[in-house]
């Protein structure tokens, strides 16, 4: 990024991107205030109102999005699922960014064998389908929420590692990092106070690119019954459950499905837009 892009006159934000941003904001609000927003508890059963369709399709105002087989309120489950899925995706993306950036900096700092090792790991990560690796780990270790988040956190770190390494090497070779180094700064100071803030915007764009992928991965695994476990619920988990009632109660499945699609679509749109504005070289 050059100074010119930073001071370039603000372009108007496309309408679609604005809508996407509004959607993301809504989702974040829902995730934050899920406990206040949900009308019922996620395990609260209303046995007299089992498989009620959503309002407008023969349902009542009591259960806006209908209920499932056990009479649990779909809207409440949806709200809590959004919270869990967003939590996992945020946690995982943050872990991936932290892990990848650290490895990238280590590679740039030590060069030599450390760098070759990191590059090898990046190659490995990029050449193996992550779903298979994730499934293997789950098979060996069993499932728990912290482990699951940590595992999702291994997704996409190589993108951050590549960026951090490339930019750090460039800055160490000529620019400000070399200048600060010869002032006598410690590596910690160079990397944390100078390099990190300077490459943060690029890293954030990279994170917006992997965020929807993590959402898809999480919901896919949960759909398969290998991710978030009941009684906890997540978007993929709900789809997996709703699949059993595809013919009788399609709303159980359609509600979380549309949230997944709208959210990944929105984040992708905003991410693409950010990338075009901030750093078109990123892939």
């Amino acid at each position: 990024m050059s100074a010119t892009t930073m001071t370039a006159p603000r372009q108007r934000i496309p309408v679609l991107v604005l809508i996407a941003m509004a959607w993301i904001a809504t989702i974040l609000m829902v995730a934050l205030f899920a406990e206040m927003l949900r009308p019922y508890g996620i395990t609260a059963m209303d046995l007299r109102a089992r498989l009620t369709p959503p309002v407008g399709f023969g349902g009542t105002i009591r259960h806006l999005l209908g209920t499932d087989e056990l009479g649990r309120d779909v809207l409440s489950r949806l709200i809590v699922s959004v919270r869990i899925s967003v939590l996992i995706a945020f946690g995982a993306t943050a872990i991936a960014a932290l892990f990848g950036t650290t490895l990238g900096f280590l590679a740039a700092h030590f060069r030599g064998l450390v760098e070759q090792g990191v590059l090898m790991l990046i190659d490995f990560q990029a050449s193996m389908p992550f779903l298979i690796v994730a499934l293997s780990v789950l098979a060996f270790f069993g499932n728990s929420l912290p482990l699951f988040i940590a595992l999702m956190g291994l997704y996409g770190w190589e993108r951050h590692a590549r960026i951090a390494r490339g930019l750090a090497i460039a800055a160490n070779a000529q620019g400000y990092a070399a200048a600060v180094r010869q002032l006598g700064a410690t590596p910690g100071r160079i990397y944390l106070r100078h390099l990190l803030p300077n490459i943060a915007s690029t890293l954030i764009v990279a994170a917006t690119l992997s965020f929807p992928e993590v959402v898809l991965l999480e919901s896919g695994l949960s759909f398969l019954g290998l991710g978030v476990q009941p009684p906890m619920t997540s978007l993929g988990n709900m789809v997996g459950y709703g699949r059993e009632y595809l013919t009788r109660a399609p709303w159980i499945l359609l509600a979380p499905s549309s949230i997944i699609v709208m959210t990944t679509l929105s984040v992708s749109l905003v991410g693409d837009w950010l990338r075009d504005r901030l750093d078109p070289t990123l892939t």
């Binding site: 100074a3 000529q174 400000y176 200048a179 010869q182 300077n198």
Partner: peptide, 14 residues
């Protein structure tokens, strides 16, 4: 101390 040819590159723009 070292003084560089490109002062913009030698400073942290942030």
């Amino acid at each position: 101390q070292l003084v560089f040819q490109d002062p913009l590159g030698a400073m942290d723009r942030r």
